[in-house]
Simulated scan of single mutants.
Amino acid sequence: MKHPSPYNTLQSYLENSNFRKVMVVCDERILQLHEEFVRIHFADNQHTQFFFFPIPVTESHKEMSMVMQLLDQLLIHHFDKNHLIINLGGGIISDLGGFAAAVYKRGIPFINVPTTLLGMVDAAHGGKNGVNFHHLKNGLGSIYFPQQVFIEPLFLYTLSDQEWLNGFAELLKTALIGDAELWYKLELWVLGESLSQLRSRISAQVIKQVANIKNGLVQQDPQDRGVRQQLNFGHTIGHALESLHLEKETELPHGFAVAAGIYYETELATRKGILAINQKKRVQRVIQRLYDIPQLDQSEQSRLIHFISQDKKNKNGEIHMSLISEIGKGIHGVPVSIAEIESLFRE
């Protein structure tokens, strides 16, 4: 697991580290959008040589073929366990680059510098990484922790509204499982303010607060065998929706899939007698204010059930979900039947 850093910024970390070679795995758009940041932080000097591996950030590129190309570059440039990978981008970048770091020579150091809200509040933390496999979301992966995660809020200003909402869904999820007070603030802002006003509310302090909730669960359960699974609220159905779109070769952003997952899994929690109806309605109202909830035809429902049956939380062929018992309190390991899931899409 990562340790507290004596360095407050990425720049001080690099200046005080002894890495002779650094591979920057990056969202290809970052090289144009933040040219000055790249020039200041990643210019070759007498101590360090930088290499770049830019990637188009779509789920279709989050595959083993892309990992193999990255591993080839590490080998060609003679990277070893004393060198560093920097993942500069959103969740796709940290997932793919972290996986490559985990498997190359049985593990080399890496750090994450998230450039999206999704990365800052969720994907860059916790050590989970991986790639899609046969249309299965994150079907291959490992748990391998970054040495550090550096949050640079300047990246938020260039995010489109869609990309910002992609990350905001994970922020909502984390509040729902771990901080009722934060959730009620978010609810007030979502229902009472414009999107531009809402964006201005999500400060570096809020991002740190949300990341700390996740990191607290990770520290209790680093290998994701118990309480950490609460972080998967919204993800059983959310990941299945993403897999469905991968199969259809269409894009569904992760956060939008998670938002739909929260909507449906909140409904499920109420039907199972776990969550009060009035709390379900409050959650669903917030989700519907910002996100479209997909409706599935019979064929799509069948494929969704297929992907849910492949979920990593399942045990001995039985579907298990992470839900909420009340706003601010997550639970995990809840057995769910296929009939219960199917009923969600009939009404």
Rank of each mutant, 00 (worst) to 15 (best):
S309C: 15
E28Q: 10
L244P: 04
D44R: 08
V38R: 12
V67C: 11
H61R: 15
V206K: 12
I40E: 13
R282L: 00
I207N: 04
Y264R: 06
D27F: 05
F37E: 12
R271G: 08
H245G: 04
H239K: 07
I86P: 01
N232G: 07
S142N: 10
W189F: 08
V103M: 15
N316W: 07
I92Q: 01
E36M: 14
V334I: 13
R20F: 09
H34L: 15
T174D: 07
Y263G: 02
G90L: 02
Y263R: 06
L136V: 15
I108C: 12
V25R: 01
V258Q: 02
G317H: 12
Y157S: 11
L74C: 08
M321R: 03
L156W: 01
I76L: 08
S302A: 15
I76Q: 13
I274V: 09
D80Q: 13
I55W: 02
K272Q: 13
R228I: 07
Q73F: 10
V210K: 01
L84A: 11
Q298Y: 10
K329W: 10
V218P: 00
G98V: 01
H235W: 04
Q197V: 14
G255A: 04
F307K: 05
I30N: 01
L140Y: 10
H306I: 12
Y264V: 05
S200L: 11
T48V: 08
T270C: 11
A43I: 09
C26A: 13
I237C: 03
L176A: 05
L231V: 06
S194Y: 06
K21L: 10
P6Y: 03
S160W: 11
P294K: 04
L74P: 02
N232L: 09
H235I: 04
F99Q: 04
E193M: 14
R199D: 03
K248P: 06
F51A: 09
L88N: 06
K128Y: 01
D80K: 10
M120K: 05
I86V: 13
L246E: 05
L241S: 02
L33H: 11
L246V: 08
F150S: 00
Q284N: 15
G98S: 09
D95L: 04
L96G: 00
L172C: 09
V334C: 09
A124Q: 00
L31F: 10
F307Q: 04
G317K: 15
R346K: 15
H332Q: 11
K2C: 05
D95A: 11
P253S: 12
G234D: 00
A43Y: 10
H306E: 14
S196H: 15
E247N: 14
L182C: 11
F233K: 03
V210N: 00
H78P: 08
L159K: 08
K21S: 06
V227G: 05
T250Y: 10
I287R: 01
C26P: 03
L33Y: 13
H47I: 11
P222Y: 08
L323A: 06
Q295L: 08
I143A: 10
G333S: 13
A123S: 14
E181R: 12
N215H: 12
E249W: 09
F51N: 12
I30T: 14
L159E: 05
E187R: 07
G127N: 05
S302M: 15
I30P: 02
G333H: 11
Y157D: 14
Q147Y: 07
L268M: 08
P6G: 06
